[in-house]
């Protein structure tokens, strides 16, 4: 565990927990894409199948359970909570996410380390995570502005990806270990998707103005 990895995990954790707590406290999920949240729930469930087969560390196990639990709780809130579900921007959240699921699954069937159930699902979760933010970015784009919650959420997720890349570089230099290319290429794609958003986030922060994305 190095400082970049820890910072990455913490910003990831903050992004998910802040989202869940704010949805619950304000009873509103306006500006948040249910499709992205469902994709993340699928990502965590399919990636952490090794909870049943391998023990890495207590930290690892607890974090996995927190990620699975909190992502399912967010989906539950947005879908079924009597009050919260009314604020869901259903008509703006129309990204055809089955395309992302299909492409990721086919890619995982073709590109994986070993042809076992666990390895194929692991690769699938890596590919899916890389593109899972797209429905959220499209929703932000369509609504034309971002409230604090959605903006902070995407900001922390982007920070998490940036720290993970630093973590890989650090591990390469200090542990003489290279990150598996499946994670590496997917991670770079994922981080690139945030770059555009970060640009506008930075501009709005600099001007102390509400975040406005171009139509």
């Amino acid at each position: 565990m190095n400082i970049f990895r820890l910072a990455g995990d913490m910003t990831h954790l903050i992004s998910v927990l802040v989202l869940l707590l704010k949805i619950y406290a304000t009873k509103s999920c306006s500006g948040i894409s249910l499709k992205t949240q469902e994709l993340y729930a699928i990502v965590f469930v399919t990636r952490y199948l090794d909870l049943f087969t391998d023990f890495i560390s207590l930290y690892n196990t607890v974090m996995k359970l927190v990620f699975i639990g909190s992502s399912l709780a967010i989906v539950w809130c947005m879908r079924y909570h009597r009050v919260v579900r009314r604020s869901y921007d259903r008509e703006l959240d129309t990204f055809r996410y089955w395309i992302l699921l299909g492409v990721s699954f086919i890619l995982a069937l073709v590109l994986h380390e070993k042809f076992t159930l666990q390895e194929v699902f692991w690769a699938f979760s890596i590919y899916l995570e890389a593109v899972a933010i797209l429905p959220q970015l499209v929703l932000l784009q369509r609504s034309g502005n971002v409230d604090n919650l959605a903006g902070q959420y995407v900001f922390f997720l982007g920070a998490y990806r940036a720290f993970y890349i630093l973590n890989w570089i650090y591990r390469y230099l200090t542990e003489q270990r290279f990150t598996r290319w499946i994670s590496c290429v997917s991670g770079l794609v994922q981080t690139a998707l945030y770059a555009d958003f970060f640009y506008y986030y930075f501009i709005s922060w600099k001007n102390n103005a509400k975040l406005q994305l171009p139509a």
Binding site: S57, M63, Y164, W168, Q176, R177, F178, R180, I182
Partner: peptide, 10 residues
């Protein structure tokens, strides 16, 4: 270098 055990990352 050896491959990093990617499964130890989240």
């Amino acid at each position: 270098p050896k491959p990093a055990p990617s499964k130890d990352e989240l």
